[in-house]
Design a protein around this nucleic acid. Structure first.
Lengths: 188, 188, 188, 188
DNA sequence: GATGAATGAGTATTCATTCAT
DNA sequence: AATGAATGAATACTCATTCAT
């Protein structure tokens, strides 16, 4: 099935890109890791750029779907945030390589169409933002600029992940979850 | 004088890299922007990589020096954090291009010696961490893991900056400063 | 087949390098002469240096194999030398371009691994030397230092070839063979 | 005096080129070795190529002058050859670096005017040739092709020098002189 | 669909040479 | 004459992409 091989290549790419960085990753390395020929990659992706795009797409969709589902539920902002953060850390622990990529790869080629990545990068903060906006109106949280708070939360999560990965201190991730939730509850 | 021309090239590089991204920046473009010949760049830098390294070096040194100075003063953690964040936002507003680079360029070639960048990236959170540790011991702030909090603060700042730059919403930066300070005061 | 294309490139390189000299030969010229793209060269050779190395390798191996075979046979030193010189001139006449290169390219970059060329350059005189040593012990030739005689023979052959090529006097090569044999018979 | 500084640069160039090879020698290295600025080199030489040319010129002139002087004297070919070879080895021992260059640098840029080097490279064999021609006519030596013999002698001398330098066996040079003379006496 | 050899546009870097001081 | 920073043409090598098998 086409899906299987595309997934095989995506996973191989995740491994290699996490290790080497996107710009330093050769398509031949991805092919090697996936156990296929270079040409095969191009049967499933139009370009190397598109692979990175797809990695972001898959991962962000998980968060966004989860966030959208959460948003529909009748929960307090504290519960929603807690659940989102738990989901986020759970995904990260499941796949550290992907986390590495999401957190590191922020330079996108101008030429290619990375608009989809950018929209994903905007969409999560946007959803958080609208959740916060609503909570603010309900008086659940104090007066604040939800755009800023959303950017701050999104960035903070990345900061913690980056710190854990950079210092290769994975136990940090375990304790981080609770701390982060705690912090945001007080902060907002 | 060597310093002048090196600085000229650094500033030109900041402009171009902020616009194009490091990996998409050609040395010839930097030279053009600086109004010098390509060869001249190599009289002041060993490689293209070294330019990026130097940009980080200059900028981080400002923060680190400021943080170190703060740390020596007899101020509450709230005051220290406030002042650091103010300084940070001030530097960002002074030079948005540099901010863009600091926030975006996170993929470092394995081959080159980017260890100095990495040490800069670690040093700010480390300084924050030791400040938080001390404050915790003094009972200024609640029980918490300072490593995580420091990573969180560092990430949150980047998140806000990234959001502002990505949406090209510079007024956001103005309001962000106060909001962020407020948030951290409550959070810690 | 890999061998065919590598050989195609080697032969093109021989032509161009003989004409232009190694340091003045551009990889693009070799590619053009071979009728392949520049990139193709690098599918068969690691670097431009390696091409020169390979040219020497191929050519020296012919002589060395021949010398080793000769050495095993029960022939007088005069017969052996005669046959080696005949073989040498025959190879030269077969491929003047290669001869030009062997005789001219003596400056090897320090950085690259030209140790294999150097070992080739040593091996022929070494084999000659051991043949002379044995002949001396048998009393076939007069008392002498075989190391010097071997270096002298090897150099003399190059001198004659160089002279012929420099003056573009190819008939010289024809008469040279007999003269050289004659000379060495008397000299040793 | 202009001569002094030109000589200073020539000697520095000889040292560096012997060590690194002409194509791998940077003008800046020559300047450094000479203790002058790069620009200064260009006050005495038109180009880097011209330095190599000058090195050959100086050295060959010594041999040629000596050969011409010898030729005028009323000596047997054996005496002449003996004296020339003695002179040659003496010069080599006096300056091994120069010897290295004379023996190794045989690839000359097409663009530059290396005709003077080439004429020098031809002139020594030519003088030897005319001496041999004369000797042959006088019946001093056996019937032979003097062009070939001259090329052979010139090459043999280079071969011995190269062998000594390559194996870094300088004692070889000492014993070589006598052996070589002996060899040629018998050979011609 | 899968392959991987061939492609060639693209680019960092070098270094001989110049020339203002 | 001496300097050495500035120059920019020149070039080896890379690697994403293609396409014939």
């Amino acid at each position: 099935m086409i899906t299987d091989k595309k997934e095989l290549i995506r996973e191989a790419a995740v491994k290699v890109i996490a290790r080497e960085g996107f710009y330093n990753t050769k398509t031949s390395k991805i092919a090697e890791e996936a156990g296929v020929a270079v040409g095969t990659i191009y049967n499933y992706f139009q370009s190397k750029d598109e692979i990175l795009e797809y990695i972001f797409e898959v991962e962000f969709e998980k968060r966004i779907n989860y966030l959208k589902k959460l948003d529909r539920k009748d929960l307090s902002i504290y519960e929603k945030l807690t659940m989102f953060i738990e989901k986020h850390f759970q995904e990260i622990k499941n796949n550290l390589d992907t986390a590495q990529i999401l957190v590191r790869e922020k330079e996108f080629p101008k030429t290619s169409d990375f608009s989809s990545i950018l929209s994903y990068l905007n969409e999560i903060p946007s959803l958080l933002e609208s959740m916060l906006e609503e909570a603010k109106e309900k008086g659940e949280i104090r007066e604040q600029n939800p755009t800023i708070t959303a950017g701050l939360i999104f960035g903070a999560l990345q900061g913690v992940v980056e710190k854990s990965l950079r210092t290769n201190n994975l136990e940090l991730l375990d304790s981080a979850e609770e701390e982060v939730i705690n912090f945001f509850k007080k902060g907002i």
